[in-house]
């Protein structure tokens, strides 16, 4: 540890923050579903996995052009959202939270199994590859994969935020998030809102899936492990806060880097376990997350 100088430390922290930016679209997708329907989506990781596999299929097997392939993949996964809403979530309106949790778990493992049945268990090539040349900013060296994907990810998140804040549909989504019944009474079509939320979530998961498989260099069910960090990031940031989703993602990314740094002294796997420990601590102190609003319960 003594050899650790300031530059290396900065480098590691920035790399962590970049990884965190990569989680942000996924956490935001999770967050949007929660805000519009109060359903916690335990199938977020599977949406990511399916997205990455579909992108693989379209870019490698269907279209020879990368851009067209990715566009097709985004359209295809975008259709999954309304489908899930219609088949699984609409019957769940006004049912206890408990039921929704278990249903999304069920949905998740079904999707997971289906993806293994369709695409097999052996890792496939990543649909997008990034230049191997690292990027240097002064004395700091960063892998270009993380820089480029963090860039794409930031753009996606900004677009989502603009949509959420500036469009009419975004407004009705926020309204439904505040109070579903009231929004319904004011003429907001809650079904459309929920379907849109799932579409956005599925599309941003696909983008995140493509980027993450680019980082790992392959598509396999290992990507599911990322989902855990998304839940953790959402909790750390606060389930009902968009800013919290982004902050949580970055914190988890940085936590991962710090965990990786401490790995030699603690033990293998600490890189993955450290953010989880952090999240447990946050949950004990602020159960509603860093930026979330505290719920007041009525009897």
């Amino acid at each position: 540890m003594a050899t650790l100088d300031l530059i290396t430390l900065t480098q590691i922290l920035i790399a962590g923050a970049l990884t965190g930016t990569l989680y942000a679209p996924l956490t935001l997708g999770f967050n949007i579903i929660y805000r519009s329907s109060r359903v916690v989506n335990f199938a977020q990781g599977e949406l990511l996995l399916i997205g990455a596999y579909v992108a693989y299929t379209f870019t490698v097997l269907v279209a020879s052009n990368l851009i067209i392939g990715l566009m097709l993949a985004i359209i295809a996964t975008g259709l999954v959202g309304p489908l899930i809403e219609r088949a699984v979530l609409r019957p769940l309106l006004a049912r206890p939270v408990f039921a929704a949790i278990l249903v999304t778990i069920g949905l998740g493992i079904s999707l997971q199994g289906t993806s293994q049945l369709i695409w097999g268990v052996t890792p496939l090539a990543a649909p997008v590859s990034f230049p191997a040349e690292p990027i240097r900013i002064g004395p700091i060296i960063l892998p270009s994969v993380s820089v480029y994907s963090a860039l794409v990810s930031t753009i996606l998140v900004s677009v989502l935020l603009l949509f959420y804040q500036k469009t009419k549909l975004g407004l009705s989504m926020r309204a439904a998030g505040e109070d579903q019944a009231l929004a319904m009474a004011l003429g907001v079509n809650v079904r459309t809102v929920i379907a849109t939320a799932w579409t956005i979530s599925a599309v941003s998961s696909t983008v995140a899936g493509v980027l993450l498989s680019g980082v790992f260099g392959f598509v396999s069910y290992y990507l599911l492990f990322v989902a855990l960090r998304v839940y953790v990031a959402a909790i750390v940031g606060g389930l009902d806060s968009v800013g919290g989703a982004i902050l949580g993602s970055i914190l988890i990314g940085v936590g991962e880097s710090i965990g990786g740094l401490l790995e030699p002294s603690v033990g293998p796997g600490f890189r993955d376990a450290f953010p989880l420990l952090l999240a447990l601590i946050v949950m004990m102190i602020r159960p509603y997350g860093l930026l979330g609003t505290e719920r007041i319960e009525r009897i």
């Binding site: 699984v88 769940l92 278990l102 778990i105 069920g106 949905l107 079904s110 199994g113 049945l117 268990v121």
Partner: peptide, 18 residues
């Protein structure tokens, strides 16, 4: 086998709850 089991379990969970 495991993948197939997962699909079945997931379907069971969803159908039962709904």
């Amino acid at each position: 086998v495991e993948a197939f089991k997962l699909v079945i379990y997931g379907a069971i969970i969803i159908v039962i709850i709904l």
